[in-house]
Nucleic acid binder design. Structure first.
Length: 590
DNA sequence: CTAGGGTTAG
């Protein structure tokens, strides 16, 4: 292989790990003398640093490059590998080497070091010291520092710095947009974005992703349209962000349109796009298409598998989740992680598979060395509590290495109601700092199922005293229609999100041609005990026209962390009030 | 000959 060919392949982004190893072998054939090929060595180092396995860059550096005198590029590439590893001791070691070999005067190298510390959240420690000691700082140094403060959530320091930068670049501006958005202040992010003197594709992507992160996917789609109107061509980053917006809206038509867009433009389905597509189809309830995308994917990593596992679990395909999980365990190229087990346990809890759930929680997770998260505990408590194993559920809570949140307690509380354990329910509620209306209603229902009418009254009085109100009946908004119109001008196939009270049921509507297309979220009133029991754990048919109940989902499925029905209603109504011109509100009968 | 900082998934 010729030298220029080798370089071309090393620099190509589509070269995979296996090919990289072959190129490495080719490179070794060129010795001696490697010295004349020092540029080649640096290219190899950079290729490893950019690969999925950046540790290879270190071994290459140690075993192959010790005979050479490294230059500033060698360190920049090595530091790139460091920034992916995110381990402070490793960074410190390379930093020391940089210092000892006299590269401290190169601002590009020092910026790389600074960037590494920033990514580890060490802005106030090593980052600050380094910045203050740097001989000549440029815009890049300031950008790193701004990112560092944003990373630890200190936007006021970031903003102070931003104002001090003499000649801020697009990158500086974008860093501010990203900083505000990822710290939950999307309004400030928007303001900075609008004040930017010039924008490039990355800044558009940053703002769009800011909207998605802050749960205003409709704004994201609007900006996506505006961006195209201003003649910016979306790239794969834009597309995967937009797919995520579609997923959180259940906007299937738009999502499908994007899928066509990907094919038309010949975008390679990498792990990011594949994952985003699978996630979108599953959140829209179209399992078949998600599976099709998954089967055709060339590169699958843990995220891809997780998208499938979690999406199937969300759709109530319990058996399939467990099958896919077993398939994943056999595949040696991926390793299940904590997110995988959220899906697995969620499936067990939805299916009422107590033994299976116990097996994974008590043993499989240890086998893979998984750190327990709140979600794992919540699923397990839910599963056991529903199955009547209230004591075991309590033991799990007692053994938690992190403080249980509201979701965990509510899972236990739900079990108390089903199995009529008044004492425990009372105890849980009295231990809650801020019980929500749902918690009181649940307790009240428990009392009434035992015909303890006086206690029912008492709960009602407490609620009145605390000013807690039940969320009123139901309202609905028509979202997808509008989004679809933005993009294609097509006004057919509107879908609805119906908000009622308490119990969420995801439904699939079967069209006349038998094609399952529409997904809605309906929150049933669980005051009627009978209805709740008839829904049970399993998906089953309801006698309401052509509607199939896919699954019950708990409220926290909509949002990270604890989330009640009220939260969800508020979220929807704030969406309505934030963009009154874009949403037509329509009231439906539940 | 090369480069450092801002955008994407579960």
């Amino acid at each position: 292989m010729s030298r220029s060919n080798l370089i071309k392949l090393l620099q190509s982004p589509s070269t995979n790990t296996k090919q990289l190893k072959q190129l490495h072998a080719q490179l070794l054939l060129k010795t001696p003398p490697l010295k004349s090929s020092f540029y080649l060595c640096n290219s190899m180092l950079l290729a490893y640093a950019n690969s999925t396995n950046p540790t290879d860059a270190f071994s290459f550096f140690i075993t192959q490059m010790h005979e050479h005198v490294p230059n500033k590029f060698t360190f920049q590439f090595l530091l790139k590998a460091c920034s992916k590893l995110r381990r402070v001791p490793v960074i410190a070691q390379v930093h020391l080497m940089v210092f000892k070999l006299g590269f401290s005067g190169f601002s590009s190298v020092m910026n790389s070091v600074l960037h590494c510390y920033v990514l580890c959240g060490r802005i106030r420690e090593e980052g600050k010291v380094l910045f203050d000691e740097m001989p000549d700082r440029d815009v890049v140094s300031y950008n790193c520092l701004i990112n560092g403060y944003a990373e630890v959530g200190d936007m006021s320091s970031a903003f102070q710095l931003f104002k001090k930068v003499e000649c801020p670049s697009v990158v500086t501006w974008t860093a501010m947009v990203v900083g505000f958005c990822s710290n939950g202040d999307v309004m400030s992010g928007k303001r900075v974005f609008e004040e930017m003197p010039e924008r490039d594709l990355v800044s558009w992507n940053a703002m769009i992703s800011g909207y998605v992160k802050n749960r205003v996917p409709v704004e994201a789609l609007q900006l996506f349209c505006q961006m195209q109107a201003e003649n910016f061509k979306p790239n794969r980053v834009t597309i995967s962000t937009i797919l995520s917006a579609c997923a959180s809206l259940g906007a299937l038509d738009t999502g499908k349109w994007i899928h066509v867009f990907i094919k038309k433009n010949g975008f390679l389905l990498d792990s990011f796009l594949g994952c985003a597509l699978i996630d979108m189809y599953l959140k829209c309830g179209v399992v078949e298409l998600a599976l099709e995308v998954f089967r055709h994917l060339k590169e699958k990593n843990t995220c891809t598998w997780n998208a499938l596992v979690n999406g199937l679990a969300l759709n109530g395909h319990v058996k399939q989740v467990l099958d896919v999980f077993n398939e994943m365990r056999i595949d040696r190229s991926v390793r299940p992680d904590e997110v995988t087990f959220v899906g697995v346990l969620l499936a067990c809890s939805h299916g009422g598979f107590i033994e299976e759930g116990r097996k994974h929680f008590y043993s499989t997770m240890k086998e893979y060395g998984i750190t327990f998260m709140l979600e794992h505990y919540a699923c397990m408590v839910d599963l056991l509590a529903r199955g009547g194993m209230l004591e075991e559920a309590q033991d799990i809570i007692k053994g938690m290495h992190i403080a249980p949140d509201m979701v965990v307690w509510r899972a236990l509380l739900g079990g108390c109601r089903i199995h009529k354990n008044v004492e425990l329910a009372e105890q849980i509620i009295s231990n809650m700092e801020t019980p929500g209306s749902g918690d009181y209603v649940l307790l009240s229902n428990l009392y009434s199922s035992l015909r303890r009418w006086e206690d029912v009254e008492k709960v009602r009085d407490i609620m009145k005293e605390k000013g807690i109100e039940k969320m009123p009946g139901c309202s609905s908004i028509q979202i997808d229609n509008m989004i679809h119109e933005f993009i294609s001008g097509d006004k057919s196939h509107p879908r609805y999100v119906v908000i009622c009270e308490k119990l969420a049921v995801v439904e699939k509507r079967i069209n006349a041609d038998g094609y399952k297309a529409e997904t809605s979220v309906i929150l049933y009133d669980i005051d009627e005990e009978e209805k709740e029991q008839s829904l049970g754990h399993h998906s089953e048919k309801l006698a309401i026209g052509e509607i199939v109940v896919r699954d019950r989902i708990r409220f926290h499925d909509f949002k990270d962390g604890a989330c009640s029905c009220n939260d969800y209603c508020l979220e929807v109504s704030s969406l309505v009030s934030n963009s009154p011109n874009n949403l037509r509100i329509q009231f439906l009968k539940a």
